[in-house]
């Protein structure tokens, strides 16, 4: 693989990433600007945020399913698991305590 080809494919990845990231940011902004924040709008925001995370990982940090990225991918998945445990657990505990104490 020559350098020129590398550069072109890198550039393409970055441009695709940029376009997707811009789109995934524009949609939530538009949704909030056009509607009053409702439950569906909030879910849309969360969804777009999560998809954008994946776009960043794939296009900007070059994480994919290949063998040589396995270590990085495992670390990211591990971090995701811990964050889900911590944030999810906190929401569950505090929500439950809130219901019982009110």
């Amino acid at each position: 693989m020559n350098e020129k080809h590398d550069f072109a494919s890198d550039l393409r990845t970055y441009l695709v990433g940029f376009a997707l990231a811009a789109l995934l940011s524009a949609v939530p902004f538009a949704a909030v600007a056009l509607h009053r924040p409702r439950a569906q709008v909030l879910w849309l925001l969360i969804g777009c945020g999560l998809v954008q995370l994946l776009v960043h990982f794939r296009c900007f940090l070059h994480i994919d399913l290949s063998e040589q990225k396995r270590d990085d991918l495992q670390l990211i998945l591990f971090s995701v698991m811990i964050v889900v445990l911590m944030v999810g657990g906190t929401l569950w505990i505090m929500g439950n305590a809130h219901r019982h104490m009110m």
């Binding site: 657990g89 569950w92 505990i93 439950n96 305590a97 219901r99 019982h100 104490m101």
Partner: peptide, 13 residues
């Protein structure tokens, strides 16, 4: 959570 079982959340938690 086992450090604060008595904080007031429900039995299931």
């Amino acid at each position: 959570l086992h450090h604060f079982f008595t904080m007031g959340q429900g039995a299931n938690v």
